[in-house]
């Protein structure tokens, strides 16, 4: 049995037919073809699937699409303004905050939620704040550096 879901994704109203057991990440990737949101684990631990739901960061693999009914979703695809990257995306590029890039969409979405209105967030706060996101190549150093720079850039 399928049900209809409607939500706003990156500013556009979308709807689709889903089974109740469809995860939000599956709806985004498989139906809307927004494949920037990644699936890196099956246990809600890695954070590669983080999106914003009504302005806060959420693991889209641990939420059903039907739970997002009428919600406003932002995915990694919704951040850039045309060719101009979001300041946090730019900060990741500038500071080499990625290697393979798999965790990056989730990192960036978590980072934006974390530093909002906190331009002077400390390194400790960043490290604690991204403990729901795993990266298996950079060792986090440049990710933290990127987020610190992104926080400052978002101020302006």
């Amino acid at each position: 049995m399928t049900v209809t879901v409607s939500m706003t994704v990156n500013g556009e109203v979308v709807s689709g037919e889903v089974e109740p057991r469809t995860l939000l990440v599956q709806f985004l990737r498989d139906q809307l073809r927004l494949t920037g949101t990644h699936i890196g684990c099956d246990t809600s631990q890695c954070g590669a699937c983080v999106v914003h739901v009504d302005g806060v960061s959420v693991k889209s693999c641990t939420m059903l699409a039907v739970q997002a009914e009428n919600a406003a979703i932002t995915t990694i695809e919704g951040l850039a303004d045309g060719e101009r990257l979001h300041p946090m995306q730019e900060a990741f590029r500038e500071n080499h905050g990625l290697q393979c890039g798999y965790c990056t969409p989730g990192m960036v979405m978590s980072a934006i939620d974390l530093v909002r209105d906190r331009p002077d967030i400390t390194e400790d706060e960043i490290r604690k704040g991204i403990d729901g996101n795993l990266c298996r190549c950079t060792g986090y150093h440049n990710i933290v550096k990127s987020i610190k720079a992104g926080a400052q850039a978002m101020k302006g």
Binding site: S44, G47, V50, V53, V56, S57, V58, K59, T62, M63, S110, D113, L114, G129, I130, D131, G132, N133
Partner: peptide, 9 residues
Amino acid sequence: IGDRQVRNR
């Protein structure tokens, strides 16, 4: 509790 995303839900 958990991580930031878990605490948001």
